[in-house]
């Protein structure tokens, strides 16, 4: 494990913690951007260049901005008196239990995967060829899904005229 991995992992975990714990909603959205950037760096660390840059474009460029717009449109930047639900302890216990189970399973399993140090030589061209060849049907379905989601999101959030159903 290299020092870079620990630094990037610490950055993304700190960003995620801040996104969940901070009081001000806008600060939460900005911390979420830090967590997304840390995850993109982890993808690059794993030699997945395309996924890393797709993560930056989609999450930092689109999802984080959408979250900020939603916060501003719903006046969520006003900090309310209670930011946690009535029984936050229950949620914390569930999350801690799930992390304990995951950690136990990860640390106790012997990986059958060969721990190869050789970098996978996968270029963006290979990914494009795979998307246009073997994975053409999922690609079309995702295109349809994105179109439907875009139209659906606009219709759901569209301002209705008063009195009109």
């Amino acid at each position: 494990m290299s020092l870079a991995f620990y630094l990037i992992a610490g950055l993304s975990v700190a960003g995620a913690l801040a996104a969940v714990l901070l009081k001000n909603t806008v600060h939460c959205a900005l911390a979420l951007t830090v967590a997304f950037a840390g995850l993109a760096l982890l993808f690059l660390q794993l030699d997945a260049q395309f996924a890393g840059f797709a993560q930056i474009l989609v999450y930092i460029g689109a999802v984080a901005i959408l979250v900020v717009f939603a916060i501003l449109l719903t006046r969520g930047s006003e900090t309310p008196r209670h930011i946690y639900s009535r029984n936050p302890l229950i949620g914390l216990v569930i999350a801690a239990a799930i992390f304990a189970v995951f950690g136990w399973a990860i640390l106790n399993s012997t990986s059958s995967l060969p721990n190869q140090s050789a970098k996978p030589t996968v270029t963006v061209m290979d990914i494009g060829n795979a998307l246009m060849g073997r994975y053409i049907l999922p690609l079309e379905i995702v295109a349809l899904l994105l179109t439907a989601a875009l139209i659906g999101a606009v219709i759901v959030a569209m301002h209705e005229k008063d009195g009109a159903q």
């Binding site: 975990v13 995620a16 913690l17 996104a19 969940v20 909603t25 969520g76 309310p80 209670h82 930011i83 946690y84 639900s85 936050p88 229950i90 949620g91 914390l92 569930i94 999350a95 801690a96 799930i98 992390f99 995951f102």
Partner: peptide
């Protein structure tokens, strides 16, 4: 786990 804790405990 952090995301799950956030989804379960936040009000907003």
């Amino acid at each position: 786990a952090i995301g799950l804790a956030g989804a379960l405990t936040r009000r907003n």
